[in-house]
Design a protein around this nucleic acid. Structure first.
Length: 277
DNA sequence: CACAGCTCCTGGCAGC
DNA sequence: TGCTGCCAGGAGCTGT
């Protein structure tokens, strides 16, 4: 499931293949992949657009055109982006959209579950990503993070709320809470200063570490070059139900918190914390 | 505002 | 072996 580190990895991998290229045609093989526009209309608008830059905002990849317009891509759970030779007939039953480039290559969007979307971004209109919270790795201060987190709501639910903080999904929420020794069902407003500070640094260091390892390949994530990341080798709790906690040896639990499968260590992430002193 | 429940989808898996 | 049926999961939406 592509979250911030995976989308950032894809952005870095794709950028040299797309920058300077002009889209010569686009085709949608699944109509709902083109969000909010008739697929043929989106293809028409894309044709002739020259790529100048790739940005990322939260889990959105933003392909910027010389005209000022752009294309937003959200991979949801199973979306993939790759650049291939136009005549590469590699079998891909999950192919949902293709974008022909002016050098004989083709950007291909595949997505087995069909949840991923591409969005047309009119020039000067970034409303797609304007409602997102701050980037956790881009100037977010501890003080700002504290104001985001201190509300009467389960901390896991806050971390997953893209309008509060952008880019965090189920894997990094669970891993960060484990690293900070905070039970996912604790209320944000009940966290101590020390806990908020631990969560802040855990979240940021885990995201940075994962980017440096080109993300987490859990199930089927691969980057734009088809390579797996390797952060899955460092996961402590996600997908580890029944395994032993590397810190205290207790058995990792999985239960539903904030309507999501949630992994945590009952030994070192307590729901009820004894008051200090 | 918090939050549960529903929707979208299909591969993967459990159970028989 | 092959069938049925359940379910995860991001985000948008509705209803309480």
């Amino acid at each position: 499931m592509p979250e911030l580190p995976e989308v950032e990895t894809i952005r870095r991998g794709l950028e040299p293949f797309l920058t300077g290229r002009t889209i010569q045609g686009a085709r949608f093989l699944w109509h709902r992949t083109a969000h909010g526009l008739d697929p043929e209309e989106m293809a028409r608008r894309l044709t002739g657009q020259k790529v100048v830059r790739l940005d990322r905002r939260g889990k959105f990849l933003l392909i910027r055109f010389e005209s000022g317009a752009g294309l937003g891509v959200h991979l949801r759970m199973t979306g993939r982006l790759r650049v291939m030779e136009m005549d590469d007939l590699a079998d891909d039953t999950a192919l949902r959209a293709t974008f022909d480039l002016d050098n004989g290559t083709q950007l291909r969007f595949s997505d087995s579950r069909k949840f991923g979307r591409v969005y047309w971004l009119p020039a000067g209109d970034d409303s797609l990503v304007e409602g997102l919270g701050p980037e956790p790795l881009d100037g977010l201060t501890l003080e700002h993070f504290g104001s985001i987190v201190r509300r009467n709501r389960q901390i896991k639910s806050i971390l997953l709320d893209q309008s509060r903080i952008a880019g965090i999904g189920n894997i990094y929420a669970d891993e960060s809470l484990y690293a900070a020794k905070i039970h996912p069902a604790r209320r944000g407003c009940d966290l101590s200063d020390a806990e908020v500070a631990r969560l802040y640094s855990a979240l940021r260091s885990i995201l940075e570490r994962s980017i440096s390892l080109r993300g987490t390949s859990y199930r089927d994530y691969v980057d734009s070059l088809g390579r797996k990341g390797s952060f899955q080798e460092e996961l402590a709790v996600y997908g580890k139900k029944g395994r032993h906690c590397p810190r205290c040896g207790a058995e990792i639990n999985r239960e539903v918190v904030a309507n999501r499968g949630t992994h945590y260590c009952p030994g070192c992430q307590k729901l009820h914390v004894e008051p200090p002193g």
